[in-house]
Design a protein around this nucleic acid. Structure first.
Length: 780
DNA sequence: CAGTGAGCGAGCTTCCGCTTGACTT
């Protein structure tokens, strides 16, 4: 018999809290939301004031039943989900789904998982804040209306299975527009002049590197300047020393953790989150989905002690950080180690590296500023008014730099502190070498996963729990791919003055190479163009920020949620209807030219199966011919010549085992076909140039692999096979697959066993390709 | 990436935010 039932969102949290509360309390987890709108229908009743039709999610039915049983036995039910919009809503949905009674139910909140905080929360219960619940409902309904009205429009006008939404469509827009910026970027160049000087002090030679702050726009000007320096004298005119300090970065939020783990450890956003989840579940770090930079008083105390013991009291500076993030809800602490005295942990190499990063960042955030002395030296030229400057930086006190320094996305030098030699005002310097080098302006960098998250956070779109899933969605929809840009070789001029002689030469550099960047696809570009044309208001960068203001008003009780939705939907739905009726197919069709062989028009466009080339007109009597574009080709840049090559498939390569071998390009990439069997080409193979020898090699490799993956075959029926696949052994029969129970040794199966499995298949109905996720079965 | 290899006469696809295991053909 449970006296008190406490419900939190996460099981790891439940475990910790149960320890604080003693045996009068049972602590359970709701595992997030327990109810939601049905996945297969709109589930928003527009006629009835946008009433949402909630249902208990399939995977939560057993859990809700268990919680209901426990709550029936308990005297008091404590709803302890997070103190933000979603958390409040989770409490309300629990209240509804568990059929709770007002007098037995108490709503409590806490921001840190400590015994005092929990006990304090228990002392100060409140009721569910229905205004906040209404704000969440508005958010949920708005997202559903936008997503479930825009996506079907895309299926109709652009391509099936596409999706659009308040968050993902803006993320795609950012990537598409960055690419356009890069395409339209006008490169310019200028000449930067650097010099190396030397002097002798107490019989010792010193060198000093300097730069001229002004740049020359043209080669002519640069050369004229360098020439004017022949026979010139150089003199130290003044030295200025200035103190400077540097501050540590605030503790990690989800977004900054993802960024730093990408920069310092090379982790993908999804990988970082998986590792962080591991660390959280094993109690090593605090909650990893947070937008807060706040540390609990307990953590501040631990940090102070740790820093004092390891580095000394002068390294301590306790700080409370304030969030700068728009719309931050701050239901949790920042991400930090649970115990700061654990500098390292046991675990996999990646877990340890991520933990150490979190530890360093947390500790550094509570350490003293670094004190520096920056020195600027001006060097005069006897033949010119222009000056060279040399800068040096000396660390007087390292402070937090002893532990950690944040990285940046661009290639700015993170650690270019240089110590200047013992230089004095009035000193004459010898010129060792002067160089005027042509430097090009650089286009903005493409987004990485992590820098996209940063940008999304700045715009206030998405939440810590959705950054990683959103990035995966826009890649799954093939709006965006991750890839490398090789860059181009570019030449630059260098004018050198040495020993009073001028030489000029050209050098080479690689420009614009980028690795692991997010690149828009043809489909991404097209969908973005569609949305921009018909729904600019929805993919406006300020749309989320604006509706968030309205959600805030709802949560403050100043506005009715369904009134807000009504105002929005009135405009939005009209757009949907008018676009449905007035716009035709949106395929991005482009006429490339005329096929010299037939005289027919050649087009490229986005078809039902992706980017496709077409010879002949759709309306003509004779059916047009189609050929899919390769993954490395794009509608934007492909030439007529390249398109015509695509129609040269299938290419007959020759004979092998008395059967024809051909190569072609299909939906899943280039393949070799032999005896009605398909063999995928390796990434390194080019279907346009592949020869029969290599094709036979590929066939051999595939056969070898098949043999390795074949567990059993049967002489009486070659169609029946026991194979080893991604999910372990399975039975394959007549192109369909059947699972084998876990406790059965696949090697021991007889032909009859297999046939039984096939016949016992519950899905007798001819359903193609089972859905990836469980679909909710809604009965009417 | 084990499997698929068309250009669609059907049926299905889809949103954002909470949270973790379940467990695939």
């Amino acid at each position: 018999m449970t006296k008190n039932l406490v419900i939190v969102e996460s099981p790891a949290k439940a475990k910790t809290i149960e320890g604080f509360l003693g045996k009068e309390y049972t602590v359970k987890s709701s595992y997030g939301h327990v109810r939601d709108l049905n996945k297969n229908t709109l589930s928003v009743n527009i006629e009835k004031d946008f009433e949402p039709e909630y249902e208990i999610s399939d995977d939560k039915k057993a859990l809700v039943a268990e919680l209901k049983k426990l709550s029936n036995q308990a005297q008091t039910i404590w709803l302890a989900s997070d103190e933000d919009r979603e958390g409040e809503s989770i409490s309300w949905h629990l209240y509804e789904a568990l059929d709770l009674k007002n007098k037995d139910t108490k709503r409590i909140v806490f921001h840190e998982i400590t015994k005092t905080a929990i006990l304090n929360a228990i002392e100060n219960p409140r009721t569910i804040d229905m205004d906040l619940v209404a704000a969440q409902q508005a958010r949920r309904v708005l997202d559903r209306l936008v997503g479930y009205e825009l996506s079907p429009l895309l299926w109709k006008k652009v391509k099936p299975s596409l999706s659009a939404g308040r968050v993902q469509s803006v993320a795609v827009r950012l990537i598409v527009e960055r690419e356009e910026e890069i395409k339209n970027f006008q490169q310019t160049s200028s000449y930067r002049v650097t010099a190396q000087f030397s002097f002798i002090q107490n019989g010792q030679e010193h060198t000093i590197a300097a730069e001229m702050p002004t740049r020359f726009d043209t080669e002519k000007e640069a050369r004229a300047f360098v020439e004017s320096c022949i026979d010139a004298n150089y003199k130290v005119e003044n030295i200025e020393k200035k103190p400077a300090s540097r501050y540590p970065a605030p503790p990690f939020t989800t977004s900054t953790l993802q960024q730093e783990a990408a920069r310092k450890l090379g982790f993908s956003v999804a990988n970082t989150m998986r590792l962080a989840q591991q660390l959280y579940e094993s109690g090593k770090i605090t909650y990893m989905r947070t937008d807060s930079v706040n540390l609990s008083s307990l953590a501040l105390g631990m940090a102070k002690k740790e820093i004092t013991e390891n580095y000394g009291a002068e390294y301590v500076k306790t700080r409370q950080y304030q969030t700068k993030t728009k719309g931050a809800q701050e239901a949790h602490e920042a991400i930090r180690p649970t115990y700061l005295d654990q500098h390292t942990i046991k675990g996999t190499a990646d877990e340890r590296r991520l933990y150490e990063l979190i530890w360093k960042r947390t500790i550094a955030s509570q350490m003293a500023d670094a004190q520096l002395e920056r020195t600027n030296v001006n060097i005069g030229i006897s033949s010119s008014d222009k000056k060279f400057t040399a800068t040096g930086e000396v660390i007087l006190f390292d402070g937090f730099l002893k532990v950690y320094m944040e990285s940046y996305d661009d290639d700015r030098a993170e650690d270019k502190m240089s110590v200047l030699p013992p230089i004095e005002v009035g000193m004459n310097l010898d010129l060792e070498k002067m160089e005027a080098q042509q430097r090009y302006t650089r286009h903005p960098l493409r987004y990485t996963e992590a820098s996209l998250v940063k940008k999304m956070e700045e715009l206030g779109i998405g939440r810590p729990s959705t950054y990683a899933p959103t990035i995966s969605t826009i890649q799954k929809r093939e709006y965006v791919t991750r890839g490398d840009i090789p860059g181009v070789t570019q030449t630059f001029n260098v004018i050198t003055l040495k020993n009073n002689k001028i030489t000029e030469k050209t050098g080479k550099e690689n420009y614009g190479a980028e690795k692991g960047k997010l690149l828009p696809t043809d489909i991404g570009v097209l969908v973005n163009r569609f949305l921009l044309q018909y729904f600019e208001n929805i993919i406006d960068y300020n749309f989320t920020a604006n509706v968030e203001k309205e959600f805030d008003q709802i949560s403050e009780g100043q506005r009715a949620w369904n009134k807000m939705i009504k105002d929005f939907y009135g405009v939005f739905h009209k757009q949907v209807v008018s676009t449905t009726e007035n716009s035709g197919k949106f395929s991005g069709e482009k006429l490339l030219g005329v096929d010299p062989a037939t005289g027919k028009n050649v087009y490229v466009k986005v078809g039902r199966f992706g980017p496709v080339a077409q010879i002949g007109d759709t309306e003509s009597e004779e059916k047009p011919r189609f050929a899919g574009l390769r993954k490395d080709q794009s509608i934007d840049s492909i030439t007529l010549e390249e398109v015509l090559k695509l129609f040269e498939f299938p290419r007959i390569l020759g004979q092998f085992e008395d059967k024809e071998v051909s190569v072609s390009v299909g939906r899943f990439g280039p393949y070799v076909k032999h005896n009605n069997t398909f063999y995928s080409l390796a990434k390194t193979d080019n279907p346009a140039t592949i020869d029969i020898e290599r094709a036979i090699e590929i066939i051999g490799e595939k056969r070898q692999k098949d043999v390795e993956n074949t567990i059993l075959t049967f002489e009486n029926d070659p169609e029946m096979k026991v194979l080893n696949g991604r999910f372990g052994p399975y039975v394959s029969y007549k192109k369909k697959n059947y699972r084998i129970a876990k406790d059965v040794d696949p090697k021991s199966l007889t032909y009859d066993d297999c046939l039984k499995l096939v016949e016992a298949d519950p899905k007798a109905a001819p359903k193609k390709a089972a859905p990836k996720r469980k679909t909710t079965t809604k009965k009417k």
